[in-house]
């Protein structure tokens, strides 16, 4: 039987059950059947994001100097540093707009579909010859891992920004990603939390509320900066109305770049940093 006929038969059967027994119950059951089981097996099974996605950039420093310079000058975020002494790209500033990829016709920068972007140290966000891959090293903070690896409660604070980061954190709670299966929960009160996820460039109007939330979390606590706004101010780095980066007022343990970070970027960062075991 083809898939379409099967679906029709199923629908028809449930309709009859509805008429004979209980309409609402049959609708509930039918939808449950149709929706099926959708949760991903990640990290045991890998997921591939379609190719238009702009993830970790691959940088070719052998490229012609004039092309590199053109990209650096046209970068709307000033994320590219090209000089005689130092060449590199700051993932904390980048908003992944793809301008440099187009200008250099992929000769200088090519955005891959690799969503592994997070680091635990700010300086490692700077991709250069010595540091071509952003990664979270194993030896960092073994104590934190022992404490939170099997159960982690996080409080989220939106401190400015455009609400895209918040929405892609929310998506982690939908059945596809199902964050809770990893023992990670986003909680309503800082008193119940082991750390905070901060999004947004920290506007001056939100500074006090963010500090109060941070202080209400019991020690030891983690601070996670999600999105380029929280790391460097993002698109608002020149604004006088923002603090431009959580790091200016709080110690940050984990940096998750992106504008906004893909839910898988955030998920992988949390799994790697806290060595979450299923």
């Amino acid at each position: 039987m083809s898939k379409v006929t099967l679906e029709r038969t199923l629908e028809h059967t449930f309709e009859r059950i509805g008429k004979l027994v209980n309409e609402r119950l049959s609708k509930l059951l039918f939808n449950r059947f149709e929706q099926g089981y959708r949760t991903t097996k990640y990290p045991d099974h890998l997921i591939h994001i379609p190719s238009p996605y702009r993830g970790r950039p691959e940088i070719n420093f052998e490229c012609d100097y004039s092309i590199m310079n053109l990209c650096a000058q046209n970068c709307p975020q000033q994320a590219l540093l090209i000089s005689e002494e130092r060449k590199g790209m700051d993932l904390g500033k980048c908003v992944f707009c793809g301008e440099c990829e187009r200008l250099s016709e992929e000769k200088f920068i090519h955005f891959t579909t690799d969503f592994s972007l997070a680091t635990a140290r700010h300086e490692e966000l700077f991709l250069c010859d010595e540091n071509p891959l952003p990664k979270i090293e194993k030896e960092i903070n073994e104590k934190i891992r022992k404490l939170f690896g099997r159960s982690l409660q996080l409080r989220q604070v939106s401190a400015g920004g455009c609400n895209a980061c918040e929405q892609d954190i929310n998506v982690l709670n939908t059945p596809f990603f199902d964050l809770s299966r990893l023992g990670i929960q986003i909680v309503a009160s800082p008193r119940h939390a082991d750390g905070i996820m901060v999004t947004g460039p920290v506007t001056k109007n939100m500074q006090q509320a963010l500090m109060k939330t941070y202080k209400a979390i019991p020690d030891p606590k983690i601070v996670i900066a999600v999105g380029s706004c929280a790391i460097s101010g993002g698109p608002f780095y020149q604004s006088s109305e923002v603090v431009a980066g959580v790091e200016n007022i709080l110690p940050v343990d984990l940096f998750i770049p992106g504008c906004p970070p893909h839910p898988l970027t955030t998920l992988k960062a949390l799994i790697d940093y806290f060595k979450v075991t299923l």
């Binding site: 400015g160 698109p235 923002v242």
Partner: peptide, 23 residues
């Protein structure tokens, strides 16, 4: 609480379209 001063940032000189578009 989310006031980031976008309208002010858009007046910045020199005005470039790709920077403005990101804002």
């Amino acid at each position: 609480y989310q006031h980031r001063g976008i309208e002010k940032l858009l007046l910045a000189t020199p005005f470039t379209i790709n920077r403005a578009a990101i804002l």
